[in-house]
Each structure stands twice: as C-alpha cells, then as structure tokens.
Design a binder for these strands. Structure first.
Lengths: 359, 359
DNA sequence: ACAGCGTTTGCAAGCGCTTGCAGCATTGGG
DNA sequence: CCCAATGCTGCAAGCGCTTGCAAACGCTGT
C-alpha cells in the first residue's frame, strides 16, 4: 500500500496524493476529495520511514524521563502522550534511570528520528544535550536551561507553600528533606529553604525506601513538621514514623510534594503541594508542537506553573505542650478530602514568569 | 554524516560499512576494525528511517497499554523498556485509555515502523488486531490469544491464592470485586471465583475511586473478607471503610492484586497477590526480541507466570464472635514487611504452562 | 601452472515519500 | 486576439541504507 496505489486509484499522480496529505492547500478542492476518499477506501497509511527520509515530519515525539515507574513521571508521560495523540503524534519513551550518560544516549538516538524531544528533570550537562540533539527541537521540563525552552514548576513556591502552611499551624522547628543533588529542582528548593531559615536534611533517594531511612534523621533533628522533596519520600517517612510509634499528624506533621494520585489513598491522607504533572506534560508537548507544526518560536524564555497546596490529614497544629492537637481539618473546620487548595501568595504567572537566573 | 562518509574515511565502500554494522560476520576482521574505528571516530549514527526504508530492522519496539499512569502498567512499561534498551531497542509507547478503537489505531500506526509490538491487556477484537499488525510480530500480555504468542500471569492462581488465604484465616463469607468486563483477566478470574463458590461484585472502574464506590456493595454483602481485582481498587475499599468507621483488618480483611509499589506504603499495608509486572514486561520483550533478532519462533503456545501471595497487614483471622482478632502477622507470628511470600499450591510452571483453552 | 572454490568486497537497484521545476490550462488585461 | 499571470498537476531527483549479484582475491589440489 503506497502512494502510488492511492494515486492510481484516484487517477492522479503520486505527487498529488502526497500534497493532498501534507499540504492540502496546494491541491484543487475536487482533486482533494477524490484523493481523500481513495485514501480511506484503501485504508492507506503513509510510511513514516519514507516520509522522514524524504525530509518530511515524523509524527513522532520523544519523551525522556528518569523513572517511568515513579508516579510523578507516569502522570507526566500520560498527559504528554494524550496531548501528542491529539495532534496525531506518536510518543517514544526513554527511561534514563537518572544517569546522565543514558540521557545523552537517548537524546542522540532520538535526534533526527523525531519531530521533537521533551527531556524531564534532566541531569546531563547542557552542552552535551544540545549537541546530541543537533537541530532537533528540545524542551526541558523541570530544569531551567537558558538556551532551551523550559517548562517548569515554580520550585521556590513549593517551599513557600509548605513552609507557610507548617508555620501557620504553629510549627517552629521544621525541616526540608532534600531530593537528589543532581536535580535542578532540588537545588532551587534547597536554596529557598535555606533562605527561609529552614534546615535541610539529605535522603538517600527520593523514594519510599529513602523516606524510611531518612526518618531517623528527621526524628533526631527534633522537628515537629517536615517538608519532603516528593510524596514517595513523605510516604516513607510516614511509614517509618508509624513503625516507630510516632503518630502523624499529632506528633509530626508531614507535607509532601507532587500530589501524586496515591497521596489521597494513604492514611493519613497526605497534605502536599501539587506538582502539576499533567500540566507540565501537556504544556511541554504543546510548546514543541507549536514550534514544529506552526514554526512558532517559544515566546518568552520559559513557562512557569504555580504549585498549589492541598491540605489533607498529615498536618496538624503543633502539639500545645503535652496535649494532642487536632488534625488540620478539624482545626480549620475545612473539608479535608479532596483537599483544600491554597495558591502561592507571591503571584506567579503562568507564562513568562519573572525568570530567575538559574541554569 | 552518512554511510558514505564513513566509507570514505575507512577507505572502503559504503556497502561494506553497512555490512560491518548489521552483519559483521560477513566482513573481514581487519576491515571490520577499520570501519569500526572510523565509525566512532566520526561519531556516526545510522539513520533509522533510511535503514528501515531499505528493509532493515528498526531498533524500535512498541508497547501499548490501557493506562500508563496506573502503576501496574507503569512498572510493566519500565521493565519492558529496560529489557529493550539492553538490546539497544527504543520503545514507543501508546496509551489507549482502554478503548478498543485507540488500541487498533495504535497497532496500525506502529505496524511496519517497529520491529515488534507488545500489547498489554488488550481489549480489541483479535482479528482486527492481527490485521492491523499486518506482518509485524506481536505479543500479547495478560490476554490469552490463540494465534499470538502470549505472556500471562496465571489468573486463576491469583484467585486461588487469595481465597485460600482468606479461608485459612477463617473467613467463610468472602467476595471478589471484579475488574472491567473487557479484560481477559477479569473473565478468567470471575470464572474461577465462581467455581470456588465465591460471589463476585462489580466495581465501576478498577481504580481508587471505583473501590470507594464499591465499598457500599461490599458492606451490604456482609462479607468478612474481600478480594479486589487490583490494588488500586483495594485502596479505595480500604479508604471508604476507614471513613465508614469499619476497621481493617479487624472487621474486614482485604486482599489486593498486583502488589504495586504503593501496596506496602499504605496503612495498613496491603496483603496482595503479586502481579509480576516486571517479569511480564521483561519476558514479553524477550520473546519479541528473540523472535525478531534470532528468528526464534516462540516455542510453546504461551508463557504463564505464577503469582505469589504477599501477606501484609490488611488481612486477619475472622473476628471470633464479638472479640477482636489480631492481624495476620500477629496470629501467624510472621514478619509482615516486606511480606511473607506464598506460592500457589497448584503447580504452575513458568514456561509452556498447562495452557488452558481460553482465548 | 591452472581450474575450482570459498571469502570479501564493490556495484547498483530500489524502499516510499517530498519537493523544486516545468508543463499545461484557464483567465484577465492590453 | 495575444501575452502574462495564476493555479494545478506531473516529472524526476534524491533522502541514506540494505542486499542480490557479480567481480576480485587467495588458496588448494592436481
């Protein structure tokens, strides 16, 4: 089933069919109809390889993540995939296991074979990324890169929301459990936490296990409230606390980050700051497609999304000297599920944000 | 950077370079070295489109799942991706949202552009799948299809393990909360449950929300133990129970299925039957690659993996008339985390299983 | 020294599609 | 009524790689 078959069936030349498909405005309306009906009468599907070889578009996008099984990226990938298929683009996926080398490999092997690449939470040197990509359009998610259009969650606001929340509940001693040093988000958040006078603690990994291991340090630090780099870490902390007989939120308030689907499934349900994975995924593909399809160069440097606080049951007022405090929902008299939503106080715009100077 | 460039650099003909790459055994050892060093001296990367057009392999596999964000498929995809990249194969991903039409579309648009396709939990008519695939190798995961090599979890054993477990804890009144009717796994499990005299209950969806909604029916049915189609559903049931003031496992024992990563993160930690997602993913790709690369036709009809029971804290002995029962771990005196593992009693082999006659 | 043979390599024909260029018809202006 | 402009369509040259075929080469046995 080739162009020629369709052409013959429609009584025109293959070139016309080709144009009918990729630049219909160049073809006479009548001919167009003819060709179109021939196409679906025959169930013709263009050969991607040939099309690509000849210099056309691929109808394929690539998305590179550190860990698909991590629900954060799972949700992100799903959103990206959905958005892509709205424009009939297929999605290639690579999982780098957070290794710079694999990230670069992935970019290199995708480059030239796809219309564009979305790199999430990249950890590879920017330069190598760029030249591995060659001239293939690239967009970076959750890592600010000067020379590449980036789609980001406002990382500083994540810290602000969490810290404000805990402090407003009366917590004075709080800590931030950091993520992997390689991540841009870790860097920004850590800096912000320090700026707010919140000490930071390391975790071996941003996972459930990592959280369990980190609990000890949390307890030793004597804090009453803790902010975790992501929800998985928070779950680990909660589990370890449970096993250690530390009650949450009565004795320790925990705020997660990302608001993965599971956050509302655990008990106590996790108070967390949304990571807007779906929006990140959708937006990233959007930027790429806009560029690839319409040649629309990304306007401002990057796009920054504002996180939101979702209050559930893992945070409560600090225990007033010896007595038990109620849960946040009790104290505030608000519904805890599906979660009260709090916007960051400093205004963050969706587009063309203040654009700090990270990279 | 083309074959010719490399050829010139190495002082040979392009065809030789081509062979050096894809069928090194046809090339003189010395020449091979020459070519190889030319290749990495120049950083040559073959053009996939061209290679494919000319009839060679694609170095691309496709995997089609109903829902990437569902941790079951997330873990499966990750494993598949890992296994694939061991053989330098890239992975294309499609999310069908469990819609037959999208599944067929996905297969059709991948067909011919990839070396092989893994279809997970397919719901489309087999015939349409097959001819959408044309001659592209296909393997089906968790759906038995006669004419297609299939990699399956032994679904009946899942029910057996769960039911045995609950009954051995003294539960007489138990129920199975079914999954989506479209799934093969639902069909097999439901049949098995009925064969064992276990009534089945419907759930609106195999999700957390679905579980919450299903709880009412569970309660109304008056059972003391319930088996859920998957862990997400189990989480929903547990959450709804919690809200309804029904204590788990004291008043209701819950057994999940799949053993997704989160199963051990929730409280009480979920007793569940492993879904062996990683093994499914790895094996599926393995079969495909073996076939594509080595022309090894899948031996027996299909490969069936045996599930295992992982006992955690959501199941306990049935409440002895008015008194509270201890948790399973207490009763059995076994460690509950990471979970005691129980193999299915009826022997299920990893390869060339008894091969029931489902389709 | 030569035929016969196995091993390497070069040659060239595409794979199916895009696209610059040229040909043709139709239409409007002079 | 002729020429130019305009709008479509056909033509054909590749895109970079694989592969059947044939030429070249180095041996062996006679």
């Amino acid at each position: 089933m080739t162009l020629d078959d369709v052409a013959q069936h429609a009584g025109v030349h293959a070139a016309t069919v080709s144009r009918a498909i990729s630049r219909p405005e160049m073809v006479n309306a009548g001919t167009l109809d003819l060709v179109r009906s021939a196409i679906d009468e025959l169930g013709y599907v263009p050969n991607v390889a040939a099309r690509q070889l000849a210099g056309g578009r691929t109808s394929r996008l690539a998305i590179i993540v550190p860990d698909v099984a991590n629900p954060f990226f799972g949700e992100l990938v799903q959103a990206a995939q959905r958005r892509a298929s709205d424009d009939d683009e297929l999605v290639l996926l690579a999982d780098t296991d957070q290794r710079p080398a694999r990230e670069i490999d992935a970019v290199r092997s995708f480059a030239g074979d796809v219309d564009g690449i979305v790199v999430c939470a990249s950890v590879a040197p920017v330069a190598s990324l760029r030249d591995a990509a060659g001239s293939t359009p690239l967009v970076s998610v959750n890592r600010r890169v000067r020379t590449v259009p980036s789609v980001l969650l406002d990382q500083a606001a994540v810290i602000d929301l969490g810290v404000d929340h805990l402090r407003s509940l009366g917590h004075e001693q709080i800590a931030f459990v950091r993520g992997p040093a390689a991540y841009w988000s870790t860097e920004v958040r850590t800096r912000r936490a320090e700026a707010l006078g919140v000490p930071t603690l390391a975790a071996p990994a941003p996972t459930y296990e990592g959280g369990r291991e980190a609990f000890e340090a949390v307890r030793d630090s004597g804090v009453t409230g803790v902010l975790a780099f992501n929800d998985l870490l928070a779950f680990g902390i909660m589990a370890a606390a449970d096993e250690a007989g530390v009650s949450i939120p009565a004795e320790l308030s925990v705020v997660g980050s990302d608001d993965v689907a599971i956050a509302e499934m655990v008990r106590p349900a996790l108070t967390t700051v949304s990571g807007r994975m779906s929006d990140l995924g959708t937006t990233a593909v959007d930027v790429l497609l806009r560029y690839v399809v319409h040649g629309e160069v990304p306007r401002s440097s990057d796009i920054e999304l504002a996180p939101e606080l979702v209050v559930r049951a893992s945070t409560a007022t600090v225990r007033p000297r010896g007595a038990f405090a109620g849960r946040a929902r009790v104290r505030d008299g608000i519904r805890s599920l599906p979660g009260e939503v709090v916007r960051p106080s400093r205004t963050t715009s969706k587009r063309g944000a203040p654009a700090g100077s990270e990279e």
